[in-house]
């Protein structure tokens, strides 16, 4: 479904890079998106230094226990509409650390904690990949602000009956 972007986002979107304990590979892909090679500034995407100025948080990493309070504070500081792009297998479902003692295990679990603390996330788009390709991040951004439709959908297949 194509979603019409919220009114606040019809113009350039400003992004804040939020590393929550990732291995840095996803962060390097974000750099690739923002620097001239993929050049997300073609679409008006601009990196800002404070969450207070940002429309979208580019969240990477599985959210370690150590970073959790800081992440909550950073997201709390963002103005509404609060948008999050969860980048990488870590941010989507915990990745290879999903059952580790020291991490929360991805954005879905963080979302619950945020809701308990009264922080509302208006829209979140998950970008899988380890690390997510720069193209995938640009695609995710486009889905997030409603320029493109999502492609994937749940598949259920019965064994022995072929595709379908």
């Amino acid at each position: 479904m194509r979603v019409r972007p919220p009114k606040a986002l019809r113009k350039s979107i400003w992004v804040f890079h939020l590393n929550t304990g990732s291995c840095n590979a996803c962060d390097i892909e974000i750099l690739d998106v923002l620097t001239p090679f993929m050049d997300a500034e073609r679409f008006g995407v601009k990196l800002v230094a404070s969450p207070r100025h940002a429309d979208v948080a580019l969240l990477t990493g599985p959210i370690t226990r150590e970073t959790l309070p800081k992440v909550v504070n950073a997201l709390k500081a963002m103005p509404r509409p609060r948008l999050v792009l969860a980048i990488g297998a870590c941010a989507v479902g915990g990745g290879i650390w999903h059952d580790s003692y020291s991490v929360i295990g991805g954005f879905p679990r963080l979302k619950k904690i945020l809701e308990e603390n009264g922080v509302i996330i208006d829209r979140v788009v998950y970008v899988p990949g380890c690390p997510a390709r720069p193209e995938a991040i640009i695609y995710g951004l486009a889905v997030l602000i409603g320029l493109l439709k999502k492609k994937v959908k749940k598949e259920v297949k019965e064994a022995g009956k072929g595709e379908g």
Partner: peptide, 16 residues
Amino acid sequence: FELATDELEDLEQVVI
């Protein structure tokens, strides 16, 4: 690789 979605369910594939 263009798997971005707003629903986690979309990322599932089930073989019964």
